[in-house]
Amino acid sequence: MSPNILEPDISYIGDDDSEFFRTVHGRSLNALNSRYMLPVDQDEVKRSELHHRLLQFVFNGRNYIGPVKEALQFGQRRRVLDLGTGGGFWAISMADDFPRAEVIGIDLAPIQPRTVPPNCTFELCDLDQGSIPYPDSHFDFIHARSMHTGIHDYPRFLQEIGRLLRPGGLFLLVEPDLIPIADGKPATQHPHGTGPRGWFTLWETYRACLKIQGIDVTVPQRLAELLAEAGVFERIVLQDGNIPVGFWPDDPHLLTAGQLQWMDYELFLPALKPLFLSSGIAEAKVNRIIADAQQDLYYPSLSTSAQLHIVYGSKCL
């Protein structure tokens, strides 16, 4: 089967899936898209779960914000699509929450559990190439989180979401910002040479490597604008929020979020090594960049945080 062609009723879960993985600089990566350089190994599955738990916490124990329950709870069998499902935790949770809905999670690699609810399936597709292989107006709710770093034409990606949604269908997009925050100010507002330099340098390097690959790193802060420009969405609601990183908050609620984000980043930092090396950075420098960022993560000099951009709305009727 061609990597960018997928029959909607096919799932690779349970099959011999070794052909969908490759080893790059000691980490397991997907084989469908050679430009996507984040790993798809057990550490990444664990990180996917941490990120899912964090967002559940942000959404007050739910898997979504917006009028999703009203749209999925009643009526005919509803269809839900999770783009870039990762470890599949969101899709499984949604299938449990809405047993009458059909939930499909698609990703570059088959790293999802083999045992899932009967109304949940996982399929493979490279979302960065060609059309997403489902009919027009096929889904009632489409969800995507942390996708923009793997999408070279995000406006086209939004058009695909619009094509796949039925009129009035809902979407929820979550994109973390790539500019870190320290003591309430983004890195760009700290005088040069101040702040947690190792932490700032890692994120500067990450953004530079993504730009080399042709990724628009400004997508997260422009989500609402891009959705409006797409011309097919309405009732667009933007909810941004700062997530603490680490154990510095006094508030118990924020402390829990900070702990989850800290554990996410602890796995994320070494996961960047294949991308950095493949971008032409010498290994000694890559090791130093990651080690300096880890030093700032483990022994922070300032209170760091990360910004999440969350947008939901519906397709125009």
Rank of each mutant, 00 (worst) to 15 (best):
R235N: 14
R27L: 04
C316I: 14
D15N: 05
D153H: 13
I106L: 12
L54C: 14
G258E: 03
D292P: 07
G313A: 04
R77I: 09
I65M: 14
D153S: 15
L254Y: 00
I310N: 00
L6N: 02
F98D: 00
L50M: 15
G130R: 06
S303H: 15
L164I: 06
P249V: 04
Q261Y: 10
D240F: 01
R22M: 06
A228H: 14
G66D: 03
P270E: 04
D292C: 06
V45F: 03
V286T: 14
L272A: 12
R163D: 13
G198E: 09
P155L: 10
D17G: 10
A91W: 00
E160C: 12
M94C: 07
F20Q: 05
L29S: 03
D250V: 08
L29F: 04
V217M: 01
P113Y: 05
L29I: 05
I310S: 00
V80T: 03
S93I: 00
H143R: 09
K211H: 03
L297N: 02
S301M: 08
M37Q: 14
D128F: 09
P118N: 08
H148E: 07
T188W: 06
R53G: 11
H148L: 07
C316H: 13
S146M: 13
D216A: 08
Y206K: 04
R47Q: 13
E225V: 13
R62Q: 13
Y134N: 00
A224V: 11
P133Q: 12
K285D: 15
A31M: 01
Y265Q: 11
E229V: 13
D126M: 07
F74T: 12
V174Y: 00
M1G: 01
S278E: 15
P186L: 10
P110Q: 10
K185C: 07
V174T: 01
P99T: 06
G280F: 10
P117M: 12
G168V: 08
K46G: 10
G86T: 03
Q56T: 15
V237H: 05
P220R: 06
S131L: 13
A144L: 07
K46L: 11
T115K: 01
S2I: 12
K273M: 10
S303C: 13
P244D: 04
D251W: 11
H309E: 00
Y64F: 14
A293C: 09
G198P: 09
P196R: 04
Q259E: 13
I10P: 00
L55H: 13
N4Y: 07
L308K: 03
R35E: 15
V45C: 14
G214C: 12
M94K: 02
C125P: 00
L178D: 01
P117A: 14
R197P: 00
L172I: 02
Y206C: 03
G26M: 05
A187Y: 05
S28P: 01
F139K: 02
A144M: 07
D82F: 02
K211T: 01
S131H: 08
D16A: 06
I10D: 04
T205Q: 12
L165G: 05
D153F: 06
D126S: 08
D16W: 00
P117L: 09
R156D: 14
